[in-house]
Amino acid sequence: MESVQNATEVFDQVYLDIRAGLLVLAASLDRIDRSEGAEAVGDDVRRERIQQGLEILSGPGLNRAEQIQVLFSDPYRSGWNTADATETSDSPGDDA
């Protein structure tokens, strides 16, 4: 099922959604930064991931959503279930 709309039609349809999403994002970051202890959040790995996500948004590409999903994903070790894999006892599949 391919898109039947051209880029201008899609942009017209999603423009206000994107604008609203940016405002929610901006207001949320402002709220964190004006709260007591904002410096500590700057060291939080989740805040760093959000910053990386913003960089993905501002870059080129056709798969920004997939890139952001991967950014927010735990590492995976291919071959974790093979006989010669070294199993960590409580977290199979970790990229140890």
Partner: peptide, 18 residues
């Protein structure tokens, strides 16, 4: 869900293909 999904889905597919 969430951060566990990519790893968990990969592991599930690995086990099914076993």
């Amino acid at each position: 869900h969430l951060d566990d999904k990519l790893k968990g889905t990969s592991m599930i597919i690995d086990m099914l293909l076993e």
